[in-house]
Each structure stands twice: as structure tokens, then as C-alpha cells.
């Protein structure tokens, strides 16, 4: 089965090479795709130097949603059966990919989220960030009628149906993860969580600075509400 690992990258020249190398241990049927989202640094060169990855270089910065969707378009076009979304900043661990795939092999599961909260396991964050994540958990749980704990985790695996659907309909906002959960569930995809470990960031700075988090929350909540009110696409 053909697997594609999508790594959206914006100004990740410090981390991207290491991240690609960390995926070396995976077998032949794993391809790596780096989507450079109009970085201002050498992300493309670094990603190409690593050798193993296919690099799609976007001419201008689309925001993470647009970059990830490009990955799904690539996967849909080239007939990949499974997509794994992987962060370019070193937060996600190659060793945990198998946990996601195991979750995806369960009958009827379409999408697996690697969750930091299911088990006690070294997830520390600032108070405001945890509060935000908590609010998202409540809102999404209300929308879905069941609990999804880690809505902001970008570490996810998708089957073919979800790939084709997201290539067409991926949320175009800046921080699409929580909206993606509602969109998928609303369109009949079975989304489950599996516990994973994650590393703290290796370098660079998070894309969500404290000053922007209010703006972020407002935007995401509005997007979730609208997704919930829109007719089912599928």
C-alpha cells in the first residue's frame, strides 16, 4: 500500500532536514512530500538536500490549510492509499506513525488523530493555550455529539476516501485542524483518536503567538460554527 507523508513547512530550514531524516527508517512504500508554503528562508533547499523527499514549492504563502490541501491534491492525483500528516518542526515522532496506522487498520475507521491527552504523557503547555484547547474540545464535542480531545493535533492519518474528500474540501483557514475534525465528522467520516507521544519543539517559534491567540480562537470558532451549519458535502 502506498503511503504519503505530508509535511507542510513554513520557514522550517532549522528543522526540516532532521525531520526528513528521522523518517528514514520507514519502508519503501512510504513517500515523503514537503509542501513549502512560500517560506522566506532556505526550507526548499534544505528539504531537497535531505534527498528522500519530493518537494512542492508554493509560489506564495497560502497558510497551513492551503499547504496541506496541496499535499492532499498530490496524494489524490498519484493514487496514494494512506496519508500521514506530519509537522515540519520536529514535534511529531516517526516512531509514533505505526500507532496511527494501527488505528487506521481498525474496520470502519477513516481518520486517526494522534492525541496528546488520552494518556498521561508529558504534554505541558501555557495556561492560555490549554484553555483554548479546552474550549475547542467542548465546542467540537458539542458539534459531534461525542468527545474528541486533541482537536489541535496535526499528527493524523487518513484513508483513501478521506484523502479524496479533503483534496476537494480542505478548510482554507490559517489553523485548520479543529475545523477539519468537524468537517470530516459531519460528512460521515469516522474519526478516532489514539494516544501518541510528542516532542517539544526543536527550534523556531510556534506559529501561534500569545497576541494572536484571541484572533485565532475567534476565527476557528466561527469556522467551526459555519462548517456545522453548512450542508453536508458528501
Amino acid at each position: 500500500m502506498k503511503h504519503l507523508i505530508i509535511i507542510p513547512a513554513y520557514n522550517e530550514s532549522d528543522n526540516i532536514c532532521e525531520v526528513i531524516n528521522s523518517l528514514d527508517g520507514l519502508g519503501r512504500d512510504f513517500e515523503i512530500l514537503v509542501v513549502n508554503d512560500g517560506s522566506k528562508d532556505d526550507t526548499v533547499t534544505c528539504a531537497r538536500t535531505a534527498g528522500r523527499a519530493v518537494v512542492v514549492d508554493l509560489a506564495c504563502n497560502l497558510g497551513i490549510g492551503g499547504a496541506v490541501q496541496t499535499g492532499f491534491l498530490f496524494a489524490a492525483q498519484h493514487g496514494f492509499e494512506i496519508v500521514i500528516k506530519f509537522d515540519g518542526d520536529g514535534q511529531h515522532l516517526a516512531s509514533e506513525i505505526e500507532a496511527l496506522l494501527k488505528g487506521l487498520r481498525v474496520d470502519g475507521v477513516d481518520v486517526v488523530i494522534g492525541s496528546r491527552f488520552i494518556t498521561e504523557g508529558g504534554f505541558k503547555s501555557t495556561f492560555s493555550r490549554r484553555l483554548g484547547i479546552r474550549i475547542l474540545e467542548m465546542v467540537n464535542s458539542l458539534c459531534l455529539g461525542r468527545r474528541v480531545r486533541d482537536n489541535t493535533s496535526g499528527f493524523r492519518a487518513y484513508n483513501r476516501q478521506a484523502i479524496v474528500f479533503l483534496a476537494e474540501n480542505y478548510p482554507a483557514i490559517d489553523y485548520p485542524e479543529p475545523e477539519e475534525v468537524v468537517l470530516l465528522a459531519r460528512n460521515g467520516f469516522n474519526v478516532v483518536e489514539v494516544p501518541v507521544r510528542m516532542a517539544p519543539r526543536q527550534g523556531g517559534s510556534s506559529s501561534i503567538s500569545p497576541g494572536r491567540s484571541l484572533h485565532y480562537m475567534a476565527k476557528v470558532l466561527l469556522a467551526i460554527l459555519m462548517t456545522h451549519l453548512r450542508p453536508v458535502v458528501k
Partner: peptide, 16 residues
């Protein structure tokens, strides 16, 4: 904005 997004994605994929 939506049209630019689609164009950028297609251009990136075509270049690759």
C-alpha cells in the same frame, strides 16, 4: 483569495 490559492496549488504541483 480562493482563486489565488487554487492557482498557487496547481502551479506548485505542475512545477514538481
Amino acid at each position: 483569495r480562493h482563486q489565488i490559492k487554487t492557482l498557487t496549488q496547481r502551479l506548485g504541483l505542475l512545477e514538481e
